[in-house]
């Protein structure tokens, strides 16, 4: 058994701590020569990656008031009010149609924990992440963003990442390129 204290790799006792001291000075000198890591935030805007979870934007046209987001929200910070509206028949003797109208859509960012579950569960892509983060308020009640404010965030949503090569086309493009349905006159 060899005593590890006498292994040959141990630095010589004569030099002792001197190499360590010099190394410390060399490291600090090297850091002095390099640019600093400081992000000068209020003066220089940060370069945030596109998937940054800054704030949630609402595309009101896509929302069907299905309430999935509100029900999945772990801390129930989404408020949705809606009512049904009856649309008169467009043709003589036709059926009246009903549609949902969104009265209120609000996210309370003082409760939100930015888990993104609402965005994941939305079947119609009505909710989007945006990297904007400068919406601090002096009054906590102002962190409740109503749908008009949530809609304003839409302008800051970054474009979706490009598809992989040879992947299937996006569903929207497939749908847009489908030939139109036969005109109703043909059946008459």
């Amino acid at each position: 058994m060899t005593d590890p204290r006498h292994s040959p790799k141990k630095p010589s006792k004569a030099l002792g701590f001197v190499p360590g001291l010099l190394k410390g000075m060399a490291t600090t000198a090297r850091t002095l020569g390099r640019p600093s890591h400081t992000a000068e935030y209020p003066d220089v805007q940060p370069q945030l990656p596109p998937r940054t979870r800054g704030v949630i934007a609402l595309l009101e046209e896509n929302c069907t008031n299905c309430m999935l987001c509100a029900r999945e929200c772990p801390d129930w910070c989404i408020y949705i009010d809606s009512h049904k509206e009856t649309l008169p028949a467009t043709t003589e003797g036709g059926r009246e149609r009903q549609r949902n109208v969104l009265d209120r859509f609000a996210i309370d960012f003082s409760l939100c924990m930015f888990c993104g579950i609402c965005i994941e569960v939305c079947p119609f892509d009505a909710l989007h992440w945006t990297p904007e983060f400068e919406y601090a308020e002096l009054d906590i009640r102002d962190l409740l963003h109503e749908k008009s404010r949530l809609g304003q965030w839409m302008a800051t949503v970054p474009p979706p990442p490009a598809l992989d090569p040879h992947s299937a086309q996006a569903q929207e493009i497939v749908a847009a390129n489908k030939p139109p349905r036969a005109a109703p006159e043909a059946r008459a």
Partner: peptide
């Protein structure tokens, strides 16, 4: 300033 830059900071600005 020197201490800040040796620590990768900017110091007073």
């Amino acid at each position: 300033k020197v201490m800040a830059h040796m620590q990768g900071r900017l110091g007073p600005m």
